[in-house]
Design a protein around this nucleic acid. Sequence first.
DNA 1: ATCAAGATTACCT
DNA 2: GGTAATCTTGATA
Length: 203
Amino acid sequence: MNNKLKKDFYTRNVLAVAKDLLGKIFVYQESENSEKLMARIVEVEAYDGNIDEAAHTFIGKTERNKIMFEEGGFLYVYFTYGKHFCANIVTGVKDHGTAILLRGMEPISGINKYAFNRFAKREITEKEKINLLNGPAKICQAFNLDRKFNGTNLIANKIYLLNSDKIPGDKIVQTTRIGIKKSVELPWRFYIKDNKYVSKLAK
DNA sequence: ATCAAGATTACCT
DNA sequence: GGTAATCTTGATA
């Protein structure tokens, strides 16, 4: 009944966790009596400051990125482009500086809530449903994730992941990442093949 | 104190 | 396919 992912899922190598994150269920429950918002992770990108110039941690520890240097199992939420928040899953052991950007999700429950947060209305079309969670900043807007959530412990009860069947390798697409200018050649974006909620298909 | 860049999105043609 | 919007962060002085 309780198939929440535990610490040891997160403390592994960032690329292994990134691949395994596909298909897992992201859960956010604001308080004990509030509705559970749930969505299936369908697209992620790995960042590793040790060898990856695009990672926020490539420059070393700063006030913004310090949570990425903790051991795996925390949320890293950052603000960018004057408008947007993006959420990441911290991975690895302490001082690794690795994390995984959540780029695309398939809504499971809380669709009216996502719709309200994204479009200020509760009833949406099928086309708008696809547009709820198919981008890193869209996910944060839909779940209302902002800087208050930076450092959230994923082993606790507010935000966590539920296990699910592993996605077979032939259903996973591995390709280059989106929206970066450095280390563009690293094939560290992973998504579920033929899933409608992926933000952008590989060329 | 000032500056440039940014793990994006929505809207335009 | 192109780009304006918008402001925090980290670096430099």
